[in-house]
Amino acid sequence: MGETAFRFEERIGLIAAIVLHVALVVVLAMQFALFPPKDITPDRMTVSLATEVSLEATAPEPVAESRAAIAPTLSEEPAPPEEPAQVEPVETAPRPAPVPQTRPAPTPQTRPQTRPTNTSPPRPRTRPDRPRETTPAPRNTGGSRIGDNFLGGSGNSTNTDETRPPAATFGRRERAALASAITRQLRPNWNPPTGVDADKLVSTVSWRLNQDGTLRGTPTCRTQNNSITASNRPQVGLHCERAIRAVRSAVPFNLPEQFYSRWDDLEWQFDIRL
């Protein structure tokens, strides 16, 4: 059995297919070299919903302590019973006596004798006067009544006469407002370094503050390991240095004194999106 030879048309088609496949591979390789794939890692996004919250509005006119509500002490001895009011009997006028009615005398043809009539007035029917029914007044069972100042105070202190409510507690709204205030004072002084992957660096600065907003001690900085790459490693030291510089430039911080226990020791993250 002999070998089957390709015809001329089949050879042309096979050669054309091979040439087209080689050309397609070359085009794809050139496109990959000219246009490398972009990093599709999603960027982090920081959302702040309390940028313009006023710190002073969270606790208007706070006081250190407020007076407790005071009620008068009940008496141990019962109060004397009250005497019921005396009701005077109401005088009623007697009824007038009825007029006696007389019958006419019979005619002498039927009966010569006449029946004597009773001419005495009947006795008036009168009922004895009854006093009006009255409801007895309730008796005091003892003790004193609650005064008007039972709810006069709003706190639990017995050393002050101030009745205004004490300072508001530190909740989520106050925390968001304090964070926004600190960010607004740091942002104008923050100048992050530039370079390859420098925008991925995240450094955390820790510092302590006095009550007047000045620094207490020296700020410290550390960079998160998951934000360091081979390209931005030379920028790590500069990133921390500029973060500490931003903190020193923002001194003195203008923060509410009533929340000093919340911002005396701070720890803040510095990145490209501060």
Rank of each mutant, 00 (worst) to 15 (best):
residue 181 A to C: 06
residue 177 A to V: 00
residue 154 S to I: 00
residue 166 P to N: 07
residue 172 R to D: 10
residue 118 N to T: 06
residue 153 G to H: 00
residue 136 P to W: 04
residue 170 F to H: 15
residue 128 P to Q: 09
residue 157 S to D: 13
residue 110 T to A: 10
residue 123 R to N: 08
residue 161 D to E: 08
residue 160 T to Q: 09
residue 136 P to K: 08
residue 118 N to K: 10
residue 151 L to D: 08
residue 111 R to S: 15
residue 124 P to F: 03
residue 128 P to S: 09
residue 114 T to C: 05
residue 160 T to S: 10
residue 131 P to I: 08
residue 133 E to C: 01
residue 147 G to M: 02
residue 118 N to S: 05
residue 133 E to K: 09
residue 172 R to M: 07
residue 131 P to G: 02
residue 144 S to N: 15
residue 168 A to T: 08
residue 121 P to D: 04
residue 177 A to Y: 01
residue 151 L to N: 14
residue 167 A to V: 01
residue 122 P to M: 04
residue 146 I to L: 14
residue 166 P to T: 13
residue 116 P to W: 04
residue 147 G to R: 07
residue 148 D to G: 08
residue 136 P to G: 10
residue 145 R to T: 11
residue 122 P to N: 08
residue 119 T to Q: 14
residue 110 T to S: 09
residue 155 G to P: 02
residue 141 T to A: 14
residue 174 E to Y: 03
residue 115 R to S: 10
residue 132 R to G: 10
residue 156 N to F: 11
residue 130 R to T: 09
residue 183 T to A: 15
residue 147 G to C: 07
residue 122 P to R: 15
residue 178 L to R: 08
residue 130 R to F: 01
residue 157 S to K: 05
residue 129 D to E: 13
residue 127 R to K: 12
residue 175 R to V: 02
residue 124 P to W: 02
residue 118 N to F: 02
residue 132 R to K: 13
residue 163 T to E: 00
residue 116 P to K: 12
residue 109 Q to G: 08
residue 169 T to L: 15
residue 134 T to Q: 15
residue 173 R to K: 14
residue 125 R to P: 00
residue 126 T to N: 12
residue 109 Q to I: 14
residue 174 E to V: 05
residue 169 T to V: 15
residue 130 R to W: 01
residue 108 P to D: 06
residue 124 P to S: 11
residue 123 R to V: 04
residue 111 R to M: 06
residue 110 T to H: 06
residue 124 P to L: 13
residue 155 G to M: 06
residue 179 A to H: 05
residue 158 T to R: 11
residue 112 P to V: 05
residue 174 E to L: 09
residue 161 D to V: 03
residue 168 A to V: 01
residue 154 S to D: 00
residue 163 T to P: 00
residue 171 G to L: 12
residue 150 F to W: 15
residue 183 T to W: 03
residue 139 R to E: 11
residue 147 G to Q: 11
residue 150 F to P: 00
residue 138 P to F: 05
residue 170 F to S: 08
residue 158 T to H: 10
residue 163 T to W: 00
residue 170 F to Q: 09
residue 168 A to P: 03
residue 138 P to M: 09
residue 180 S to F: 03
residue 111 R to C: 07
residue 157 S to L: 03
residue 168 A to C: 05
residue 142 G to D: 04
residue 180 S to D: 14
